[in-house]
Design a protein around this nucleic acid. Structure first.
Lengths: 142, 142
DNA sequence: ACATTTTCATTCGTACACAAGTGATAACCT
DNA sequence: AGGTTATCACTTGTGTACGAATGAAAATGT
């Protein structure tokens, strides 16, 4: 029986929460070596906007799993850098529409190949089959 | 061939970084329902201190994968609540030693069973075998 | 012994992440 | 229509997370 499952023992290092945090740390570190001037959430926002075109802030948050407060900060910083453009929805005055600027579009297209490298490097300790398994299992607990 | 691995396609939702973030989000949410007055990092710090007794702040950070700046914030908040006790190392004047107070010890012992529940609930979408596999694969990429 | 390098802790700045509360607007419902 | 509820965005407050810079103290090398 492994130490993690032994009755009466509790090792933080073996818990799912701890390992998730560490794996994420390593991924973010790898990300930063390949894409220095964008954070993973910022990249996710730009990549998603490229997929869907224009959306509202909240809707975008739903697509990339960020709550309203978080998405606002991310979008504000992207807007300040001229990568996205904001506009009030003409009919529904509550909504704030977001879309890529030309520069934002150019940037995300340029960075997409590097994103693939990041994924590869993060999964490099695993075989292709194990990587696929990991993705599936993680998706199930998400 | 799955969409994620198709040449020329890039879906943020299928990337390891995105799925890691989402899995972690769900875990933290589950954690909060069972242990409301402690965050996962705070819990990790207390649990580790219970294992090792007294350590320095930096050393503790190494054990639970937090850098110096992060660990300081966590420990400060625990100290403010009287759960840990701080003291300068007598010989090495650089080091700040940390240990559980009686209250901190009582609390972490009380919460340990709930931590097991949290782990179980987080992994509940998986079979026992798959859960074990996930732990192993995550550890490999950590 | 003494200069160099490490280590430890702290501080500052930036960036998520989310709960809770607010105000404006839209949708709903009888 | 008019009141209720829901949605959207924003704000505030707390808590990680980490890079970079700083200062004190210890370890190291010659």
């Amino acid at each position: 029986m492994s130490p993690e499952t032994t009755e009466g023992t509790y090792q933080v290092q073996g818990q799912i929460g701890f390992v998730l945090r560490k794996a994420n740390q390593r991924h973010v570190a790898i990300f930063a070596t390949h894409i220095a001037d964008l954070t993973p959430p910022q990249f996710a926002a730009l990549a998603k906007l490229r997929d869907v075109g224009e959306t509202s802030q909240n809707q975008l948050g739903g697509l990339i799993a960020m709550d309203a407060a978080t998405v606002k900060g991310v979008i504000d910083r992207l807007a300040a850098r001229g990568l996205v453009q904001l506009a009030k929805h003409e009919v529904d005055k509550r909504r704030l529409m977001v879309k890529l600027t030309d520069e934002g579009h150019r940037l995300i297209v340029e960075l997409l190949p590097r994103a693939r490298t990041i994924t590869e490097e993060t999964l490099s300790p695993l075989s292709a089959k194990d990587a696929e398994t990991l993705l599936q299992l993680l998706t199930k607990i998400s």
